[in-house]
């Protein structure tokens, strides 16, 4: 397989994000958030927990672990929504403007363009998840001494959410205008989120219809289970023990998780990405330009 054109398209995608000031905007905003959250974390030592006594080291780390879940939720949402907004017009805008015409008249396949764009966007998603996640964890670690139990898995789950949504948005981009694809991608993200909660509620109250609905939505848009994997990666032993003690009653809570996603589900998420990428290539091949 000739990868040179794929790399050219990937490079162009990253180049575009850089030249259009997307990267610099994201980096500056993220740095501001990391500095701000790290400062707030450093203030945990000054709060009073009981009878005016300052918190112990264990208590600070426990609070930090819960705040980290909220911060990670914000980063995951920003990454997921950014992935949709960047990928949704990625192919459609180039087709509508005519930009693809001269490029596709070269000795390249349409698959090269699709895979190249996906690769470029994936590099951006992974770099953002890895870079921002590492700095945030570093800031929290320096100010509170807390490091989540599985930091690498945490970043991988958050990046996975971004990859799922960018793949979906890229598929939509082969057929729909950027705005339409973007809105559908956002709706899919929130439906997956709500679907996960509904499925969990179904488990908690023993309602099979809700449980199955949650499972189907989770398989169609496998972002929520990845988020739960991220939460699991951030839970210290005491929180995990509390989650397990709550049993199935806790299933609907997207911020308290007892178990990581099953390997079979992670395999499904990988197959889902590859399958949608193949569908994207097929769809773009069939599109008249």
């Amino acid at each position: 397989m000739d990868v040179a054109p794929i790399l050219t398209f990937a490079k162009l995608t990253i180049w575009e994000a850089s030249r259009r000031k997307l990267l610099i905007a994201l980096v500056l905003l993220t740095l501001a958030i990391i500095v701000g959250t790290s400062f707030l974390m450093s203030r945990l030592w000054t709060v009073s927990v009981q009878n005016g006594r300052p918190p112990s080291e264990v208590e600070v780390r426990l609070i930090a672990s819960q705040l980290l879940i909220l911060i990670a939720f914000m980063f995951a949402a920003v990454l997921a929504l950014s992935s949709v907004m960047v990928a949704a017009p990625s192919i459609s805008a180039d087709v509508e403007s005519g930009l693809v015409l001269s490029m596709l008249s070269r000795p390249v396949r349409r698959a090269d363009l699709v895979i190249g764009k996906w690769l470029g966007l994936a590099v951006l998603v992974v770099a953002y998840a890895g870079g921002s996640g590492f700095l945030e964890l570093l800031g929290i670690s320096l100010t509170t001494g807390y490091v989540p139990p599985h930091p690498v898995q945490l970043l991988a789950y958050i990046a996975g959410e971004g990859l799922i949504l960018l793949t979906l948005a890229l598929l939509l981009s082969t057929r729909l205008p950027g705005m339409t694809g973007g809105i559908i991608g956002l709706v899919a993200y929130f439906v997956a989120w709500v679907g996960g909660i509904l499925g969990g509620v179904g488990v908690a109250i023993g309602n099979d219809a809700l449980r199955h609905t949650g499972t189907v939505i989770g398989l169609l848009i496998p972002t929520d289970q990845l988020w739960r994997g991220a939460v699991y990666s951030m839970e210290p032993a005491s929180i995990l023990a509390a989650a397990r003690a709550a049993g199935r009653l806790n299933s609907g809570n997207p911020f308290l998780v007892s178990n990581p996603p099953a390997f079979a589900f992670l395999a499904w998420a990988a197959v889902w990405i590859l399958g949608l990428l193949a569908l994207t290539i097929w769809s773009f091949r069939k599109r008249e330009v």
């Binding site: 180049w15 403007s97 930009l99 015409l101 001269s102 008249s105 000795p107």
Partner: peptide, 18 residues
């Protein structure tokens, strides 16, 4: 054979950020 052809589309548009 596309290595040996050139094409100027009617709807000409090139990356404005380059």
């Amino acid at each position: 054979v596309r290595r040996r052809i050139g094409y100027l589309p009617e709807l000409f548009r090139y990356q404005p950020w380059l």
